[in-house]
């Protein structure tokens, strides 16, 4: 059985190779890759191995992105030290994984489990895993690095009253009335905010729940929202979004 090992740390790579060799299975390591780039290069240049052992955190990013760049048809066994998010992802999607430090016993167990499930199920599981990871917003930002005068400052998300987009820049205004600028787009910021606390009121504004002072009904079913902190422009919630906004606000 031929295996490819993807692991960014030299010694960890050796530890994994040793454990594979010491297992009950006859597995030969035919390839080693340390980064996403190397992995993609190896997989494009060589025929598909029988199995891949894949560390999740690589030196140049998460190994999940290898799947987006090259078609993998063989079974994959993931390797991680302690990543709660990854572990949850594996449990939910019936994926084989190894926990560091890796022992031959762990390899035996994983290989045995692999034998018992069909090849089709395996690739389906991986597809589901990637999809699941895409939908999970697992880490909301607790702070933003913003520009203020000539400095960069970390600002706590809980201090932000509203985010406001102009043509080129995103502005962040805190409850003490200070305004900072951020390099991120309003869309990107919106994705990283806890949805209970912040609402995308319109194309220009994301507002904090506790910053809202008053909501009044505007004409044509629109809503006008005023905050405790002065906003550069009136915040209008469109008719299409009004009911969503109301249910968010009263939740």
């Amino acid at each position: 059985m031929n295996a490819l090992i993807i692991e960014d740390e030299e010694i960890a790579m050796r530890a994994l190779t040793d454990a594979i060799h010491a297992s009950d299975y006859d597995i030969g390591v035919i390839g080693k890759a340390k980064t996403i780039t190397e992995s993609v290069a190896w997989l494009t240049a060589n025929p598909m191995p029988d199995i891949i052992f894949m560390d999740i955190n690589l030196g140049d990013g998460s190994s999940f992105s290898i799947f987006e760049r090259v078609q993998i048809t063989c079974p994959v066994i993931f390797v991680t030290a302690y990543d709660e998010f990854a572990l949850k992802a594996f449990e939910v999607n019936c994926i084989d994984y190894l926990l560091k430090p890796i022992t031959p016993r762990q390899i035996n167990r994983a290989m045995k489990k692999l034998d018992s499930i069909g090849n089709l199920t395996r690739s389906e599981n991986i597809d589901r895993l990637l999809e699941w990871i895409g939908t999970q917003n697992h880490a909301y930002r607790r702070s933003f690095l913003v520009a203020y005068k000539d400095k960069l400052l970390p600002v706590a998300t809980s201090d932000v009253a509203f985010f406001y987009a102009t043509d080129k820049q995103t502005h962040i205004t805190t409850y003490d009335g200070r305004t900072y600028t951020s390099e991120s787009s309003l869309d990107n910021i919106g994705r990283s905010l806890p949805p209970d606390e912040f609402f995308r009121a319109n194309r220009q504004y994301i507002i904090a729940h506790r910053a809202i002072k008053e909501i009044t009904v505007w004409f044509a079913g629109k809503l006008s929202v005023s905050l405790y902190i002065d906003t550069p422009e009136h915040i209008i919630v469109s008719r299409a979004k009004a009911s969503q906004f109301k249910s968010w606000y009263t939740k």
Binding site: E9, I11, A12, M13, R14, A15, D18, A81, Y82, D83, L99, K100, P101, I102
Partner: peptide, 18 residues
């Protein structure tokens, strides 16, 4: 602690004997 600890133990396992 946990992530760092287990990564370190794994490295240690690779060093021992080698």
């Amino acid at each position: 602690s946990p992530h760092f600890l287990f990564n370190s133990l794994n490295t240690l396992r690779g060093l021992i004997g080698n």
